[in-house]
């Protein structure tokens, strides 16, 4: 195991994060604050409680999930795509590192960044709404697993992407709609019966629901199912990454 390599990849990715602190840090905080102001205070005050929780507080887990998912995907995909784009990938390919070490370095850093942003948003939320987290350890576990699994997804996308447009494609056209429609801002019980069934095909529903349960103790789907869903998603991503590793897909000619 080349631990030094993991360390330097992780470190250099993190330093990029702190170098572009305004872009990677302030912008998600700012946009979440805007969500709180608009949905929490302005509109939220006219919305009745959802499942016994004030609407402003109800959207907190969803908001964190929305940001964490998009951030870990885009961080990881950019992290591995950038060396491909500027050509520095030659160094990774000629170094005595295994693909696993590369994945741990890049995915670990992307997940860490997303986790930090998630915690900052949570901190910001306390300024706007009253929050009481019922299962803090479960909350952390869900958050970490989500960061990791979506960073893995992002890593795959970054390997796959041939240009910047493709890099944006999946986060923009797939992840964002799935998160918005995955009950981030509503309980799926508010949907008409038919759409309640359809929405169960959206994997994000399980993640948001489980995460919200860790806050309020109420969930759209059973917590066990949520855990199974995120576990399955992580395994699927890991499997794909393993396949890339075996075949050298899109990396080694």
């Amino acid at each position: 195991m080349n631990l030094q390599a993991i360390k330097v990849i992780y470190k250099s990715e993190m330093s990029r994060f702190f170098r572009t602190v305004a872009q990677s840090f302030l912008s998600p905080v700012l946009s979440t604050s805007l969500y709180f102001i608009v949905f929490g205070s302005a509109i939220g005050s006219r919305i009745q409680e959802v499942e016994g929780v004030a609407y402003g507080a109800f959207i907190v887990p969803g908001l964190i999930m929305l940001t964490v998912m998009t951030q870990s995907t885009s961080n990881a995909s950019f992290g591995i795509y950038f060396p491909k784009f500027i050509g520095t990938i030659y160094e990774l390919l000629s170094a005595p590192v295994s693909f696993l070490e590369i994945v741990v370095g890049y995915v670990g850093a992307a997940a860490t960044k997303a986790f930090i942003i998630g915690m900052v948003i949570l901190g910001t939320a306390f300024f706007f709404v009253d929050l009481d987290i019922q299962h803090p350890f479960a909350m952390l576990a869900f958050l970490i697993l989500t960061c990791l699994s979506f960073a893995l997804l992002g890593f795959i996308l970054g390997i796959w992407a041939g240009n910047f447009e493709q890099l944006q494609l999946v986060p923009l056209l797939v992840v964002t709609p799935l998160v918005f429609l995955g009950g981030s801002f509503y309980s799926i019980s508010m949907l008409p019966p038919f759409w309640q069934k359809v929405t169960l095909f959206n994997p994000v529903v399980y993640l948001v629901s489980g995460f919200r349960w860790s806050f309020f103790g109420t969930a759209d789907v059973p917590v066990g199912l949520s855990l199974a869903a995120i576990g399955l998603f992580t395994l699927a991503c890991l499997g794909f990454v393993w396949w890339i590793f075996k075949t050298g897909w899109k990396i080694r000619s």
């Binding site: 030094q4 990849i9 250099s12 330093s15 170098r19 950038f82 030659y90």
Partner: peptide, 28 residues
């Protein structure tokens, strides 16, 4: 390996990019 093309991350400091290479090759 010194590649033909000048492939370097433009925003990094010289010392950092060289230390990065050292670590990547497993050296303390």
């Amino acid at each position: 390996l010194v590649p033909q093309e000048i492939n370097l991350e433009p925003f990094e400091k010289v010392i950092d990019t060289v230390s990065f290479s050292r670590g990547l090759f497993g050296k303390k």
